[in-house]
């Protein structure tokens, strides 16, 4: 049972990460693969504030999310003012730099990881309560992203992706929108990181490496970029599948490589057979039905 609860928590966190990453690379068209580093910032900031400064865990989590959002804005602002392409370079540099710093600073526990992170909710409510919290957080993230993508903000993002010059010529501030969306998505990642840290109570820098970036990118792309349910499906599939094959009675020496093979094989199969992902995004931007009815005065 514990195993299933932990799996549910991992899936919930992946859903939140993939969904917020989809907002950044899909809807906003911002090419960054550094989502895991904001996940890391949320985890470390929250863990350290709660462990070393004695902050209540919920407050520490909020600080972790805000720190991730602030860090992402600091990366995005200078690079987006030049050109969107620089964001990819800046974000990779930032990811490598932050992880290197974490590995070499004593306060973060170095490469060995950060231990004794204060627990939250589990001691009073049990692991089931924590899983419920994470799933509620994941659901909220998906809902928020849906709201953003299919309301006036999503319309503006769609226009911005189509033609940024014409967009600016209409009086819209593209840089401000990109920074805001990047900070929002990264803040969600930070909160996910904090939720991870206070459940597992142990984090190491290697969990947030480029490999994790690749996994997240796969979830979004295989699931279906620029769709609400694509990243959800991708996250569930890619979290659950590697776990599922552990039930097959195989020696660990084969199991590890088999998981890797499955992972990359899936990407290759999708690349050839279904490049749009499991759920395909429509060509045109669609407003939420209820929303457009309201602005027409029909509801």
């Amino acid at each position: 049972m514990d195993y299933l609860i932990t799996l549910a928590i991992m899936i919930g966190l992946s859903v939140a990460l993939a969904s917020s990453f989809n907002l950044i690379i899909g809807y906003a068209g911002l090419v960054s693969i550094a989502h895991p580093v904001f996940y890391a910032i949320g985890a470390y900031v929250s863990a350290l504030l709660a462990r070393d400064l004695g902050l209540p865990v919920p407050l520490a989590m909020l600080c972790g999310a805000l720190a991730a959002a602030a860090a992402s804005a600091a990366v995005a602002l200078p690079s987006l003012r030049v050109s969107g392409d620089y964001l990819l370079i800046a974000s990779i540099g930032f990811q490598l730099g932050v992880l290197e710093a974490i590995k070499n600073v004593s306060v973060t526990g170095g490469a060995g990881g950060l231990t004794n992170i204060p627990a939250f909710l589990v001691q009073d409510g049990g692991k089931g309560a924590y899983a419920a919290l994470v799933i509620a957080f994941a659901a909220l993230t998906v809902w928020l992203n849906w709201r953003i993508a299919h309301g006036p903000y999503g319309r503006a993002l769609s226009a911005m992706r189509d033609d940024e010059t014409a967009f600016a010529g209409l009086g819209r501030n593209a840089v401000a929108m990109k920074v805001a969306v990047f900070a929002f998505g990264s803040g969600i990642a930070g909160l996910a990181g904090a939720l991870y840290a206070h459940y597992f109570r142990f984090v190491t820098p290697e969990q947030f490496e480029i490999l994790q970036s690749a996994a997240l990118l796969t979830m979004v792309v295989v699931g279906g970029v620029r769709t609400t349910w694509g990243p959800v499906l991708g996250a569930v599939l890619l979290q659950a599948l590697p776990q599922a094959i552990t039930f097959v009675d195989l020696p660990p020496a084969i199991l590890g490589p088999l998981q890797g093979l499955l992972f990359t094989g899936l990407v290759l199969v999708f690349m050839v057979l279904r490049p749009q992902g499991l759920i395909a995004a429509g060509e045109a931007w669609q407003p939420a039905k209820k929303y457009s009815a309201k602005t027409r005065g029909e509801a």
């Binding site: 319309r155 769609s158 226009a159 033609d163 010059t165 014409a166 209409l170 060509e283 931007w285």
Partner: peptide
Amino acid sequence: RLFPSLSVLDNLMVG
């Protein structure tokens, strides 16, 4: 420089 992914109405609504 229209926005091809938006409907005509939505093109105007960004303006």
